[in-house]
Design a protein around this nucleic acid. Structure first.
Length: 497
RNA sequence: GCCUCCAUCGUCUAGCGGCCCAGGACAUAGCCCUCUCAAGGCUACAACAUGGAUUCGAAUUCCAUUGGAGGUGCCA
């Protein structure tokens, strides 16, 4: 067992082949947390050796997404560092050298098999119900002969020479010892015909050269762990701690999220790609809080955490190896809770763009005034304009259904509205606290129920049945506009009597 | 098919041999608060996959079964 207090050097090593997914974000988060907790370093490394699937915009999106979450690295392609370069395409020669070194010491060999031969081989293996594996055709070509053919320009790859007997045992921090029968292993390609290294080689070389102490990665790497172990062994390098995280399952719990499911999720206002969450009205704090606890626990009794709490409480011991289904309702819960925990100024600042995007003509001050009314009524930032819109309108067209209250005739409503107009006109202190007592006295005098009177006023002032507390809204809207809206309602009621 | 990993409420989890007829959170239902809606408070519902073994004692250890996930590329 490693000492979790020793400074950890960890790395997040995405390949720029697509968008940054929640699973990747969680891996990066854990890297960041353990680095911060132990006073170590977090490194961002771009694994772009696959030139055919390369997406030019992907690296920037990864950087933006991680920054949005509040994660910063100590070394990376954008900021450099003492162990660079941090893009694998800039390290091609390093991998080639190590691959040749592996050949020299007899741990790897040149293979001249053509893709066609390999395909035929696999076809036959499938026919005979064997598991697909390289048959070792080039494994025993004498090195001198192989070198001659390489020098002659014959196309070739380099394969790792793995033992076919015995068992290999590798330790994973979450699962203990993992053992595999070496018969199941094949001589994997580590260097392609075009000279580029595969993940198996490139990642091991980089992890070693960059001094990585803990390899935290998705559990889809578990099957190739023995291979990685063998590369370290062959080179005589010290192995890092291996930490294979649980996979994230779709909300249904049935397998990984499919493309169709993620599109469906987006329609419901949810997302699986990190950079989609901001526009949806989610707080980075909430997303962080949420993903941190997928397949993990930080505290048996609590689950609301800021980044600092997560850093303090993070431990490999509380990572769960079992697959975990994503629960978007929990995200909503965290988002609401984090919105409520924000200062009013901070909330106003974050809300402003959403108000403008919703077509509400206002500014920071305008949003700030409305924040106390809406803060505890939002799940997402996009809810803000919805809840507060009526407070920014010039006037509210009266709607009969909103004005009418239970057990009241139109004549009652007119009476109430006229009385309210009169009382409110006479108010000197037009604050929520200032208007409460006079208005309650009025209700008593009128002899109706508070719900009836305030419901009617709510309808007149907002055109809605549901709003934040009436007096608070009235204060924000202002006396003049409130009176105008009540007058409009009276006129409307009389016309429809 | 084969290989590897995994298995506590619907979901995320606490639990590391007695403190557990299993605790928390989300979701759901009810009540309280209340000018509506929220927020908040309280309550309810709800789980150790199955079968063996070890032990005085097992959710916790071991084995099998079943179920789930991942892998099986000159992708990562």
């Amino acid at each position: 067992m490693t000492n979790e207090n020793k400074p950890a050097r960890v790395r997040f090593a995405p390949s720029p082949t697509g968008r940054l997914h929640l699973g990747g974000a969680r891996t990066a988060l854990y890297d960041y947390l353990i680095a911060k907790k132990t006073g170590g370093q977090f490194i961002l490394r771009i694994e772009d050796t696959d030139r055919t699937r390369y997406v030019p915009t992907a690296e920037q999106e990864i950087i933006d997404g991680l920054h949005w979450l509040g994660i910063q690295w100590d070394e990376g392609p954008d900021i450099g560092g003492p162990y660079g370069p941090y893009r694998q395409t800039e390290r091609k020669e390093i991998y080639q050298k190590v691959a040749e070194q592996l050949v020299e010491i007899g741990a790897a060999y040149y293979c001249f098999c053509t893709p066609e031969r390999l395909e035929e081989m696999r076809r036959q293996q499938a026919e005979n119900n064997e598991f697909p594996h390289y048959d070792g055709h080039c494994r025993d070509i004498p090195l001198e002969e192989a070198k001659r053919r390489v020098a002659a320009g014959e196309p070739h790859v380099i394969r790792l020479k793995v033992p076919h007997e015995g068992t290999t045992v590798v330790h994973d921090m979450l699962r203990g010892d993992i053992s595999i029968d070496n018969k199941q292993l094949e001589d994997a390609i580590i260097l392609k015909t075009d000279g580029w290294a595969l993940y198996h080689l490139a990642a091991m070389v980089d992890d070693h050269m960059m001094g990585i102490t803990h390899v935290i990665r998705s559990s889809e790497w578990l099957p190739s762990l023995p291979l990685h172990h063998m590369i370290y062994q062959a080179l005589g390098w010290d192995e890092p701690e291996w930490v294979h995280l649980s996979v994230l399952l779709s909300p249904s719990g049935k397998g990984k999220l499919s493309k169709r499911e993620s599109e469906e999720l987006l329609k419901q206002g949810y997302a699986v790609f990190l950079t989609d969450f901001a526009d949806l009205g989610y707080l980075p704090e909430a997303v962080t809080n949420w993903i941190a606890q997928m397949g993990a626990s930080f505290d048996g009794e609590n689950d609301f955490f800021a980044m600092d709490d997560l850093i303090e409480k993070f431990s490999f011991e509380h990572l769960n190896p079992a697959p975990a289904a994503m629960n978007f309702l929990k995200l909503d819960h965290f988002n609401g809770a984090h919105i409520r925990s924000l200062t009013q100024k901070d909330l106003a600042r974050r809300l402003l763009p959403f108000f403008l995007k919703a077509g509400i003509n206002t500014d920071y001050e305008g949003v700030y005034k409305v924040v106390p009314c809406i803060q505890e009524r939002m799940v997402k930032l996009t809810d803000g304009p919805e809840v507060a819109r009526f407070m920014f309108e010039e006037d509210i067209p009266p709607v009969m259904d909103q004005l009418m209250q239970k057990k009241l005739e139109i004549s009652d409503c007119i009476k109430i509205a006229e009385k309210a107009f009169e009382v409110i006109s006479g108010l000197d202190d037009f604050t929520a606290v200032g208007m409460e007592q006079p208005l309650r006295d009025m209700v008593a005098e009128l002899g109706y129920k508070p719900g009836q009177v305030f419901g009617l006023l709510r309808g007149a002032i907002s055109g809605q049945k549901v709003t934040p507390p009436l007096f608070d809204c009235m204060e924000v809207i202002g006396k003049e506009k409130v009176l105008q809206r009540i007058a409009d309602a009276v006129e409307f009621l009389k016309a429809n009597q």
